[in-house]
């Protein structure tokens, strides 16, 4: 990653790497914070000036790597619009939470090869604040009482060719939801809005 991102300039490839890495850490943080996987399967890692938790579950790692590598490709093509972490109850199969990362792509970067001016430090600061918000959101999100699992949805262009391991899905809305918008960060090529929707507690 460091090879593609120079000190003060961002290329499309570098931006893709940054966003993908953010997704990786963001998803890991959500999974840890929301208790989708047991806390003992996570290990500490230093990133964005924060101590983040990253899974050690091999199966989960494999899944995340597969998904993120595919998303990287789509980020590079700028065909991805949203990445959604859907948290579902296993018992009732009900969607309880949706962590939505809206990706706005500056499509001029596809044709322009000129790198943008923005320091990596600044970006990582922005990302750090987003992840801090994700971590802090535990305070207002309702407790997940039943056992839950998560799914990753990717909103892409309609005319995108679907890879073999992937299938089309519904948007998996929450029936009665409340939404909270979190911070935004941008690499000047990709702008990522973070928000969380959760089931209103009756």
């Amino acid at each position: 990653m460091a090879a593609t991102v120079t000190q003060n300039a961002i290329t499309l490839k570098g931006s893709t790497e940054i966003v993908a890495e953010f997704f990786m850490y963001g998803i890991n943080s959500i999974l840890y914070q929301r208790g989708i996987y047991p806390p003992e399967t996570f290990t500490r890692a230093q990133k964005y000036g924060l101590t983040l938790l990253v899974t050690t579950d091999e199966q989960l790692k494999k899944y995340l790597n597969e998904v993120i590598s595919q998303i990287k490709e789509w980020l590079f093509n700028m065909t991805v619009k949203k990445l959604v972490v859907v948290i579902r109850s296993i018992d009732t199969n009900e969607v309880l939470e949706r962590w939505q990362f809206d990706v706005e792509c500056d499509k001029t970067a596809l044709t322009e090869s000129k790198p943008r001016e923005k320091s990596e430090k600044e970006i990582s600061k922005e990302i750090g604040s987003v992840i801090r918000q994700i971590t802090a959101s535990v305070t207002f999100l309702p407790l997940l009482e039943s056992a839950c699992e998560f799914d990753l949805l990717v909103y892409t262009d309609k005319n995108l060719e679907v890879p073999e391991a992937w299938g089309e899905s519904g948007p998996q809305f929450i029936a009665n939801s409340e939404e909270v918008r979190l911070r935004t960060f941008t690499t000047t090529i990709h702008k990522v809005d973070t928000m969380v929707a959760y089931k209103k507690s009756d």
Binding site: K158, V162, E168, I174
Partner: peptide, 15 residues
């Protein structure tokens, strides 16, 4: 915020 999208231009994929 709830995750709605325009089905004419967007589709939802998952692994």
């Amino acid at each position: 915020l709830q995750g709605d999208y325009d089905p004419t231009t967007t589709k939802v994929l998952h692994f």
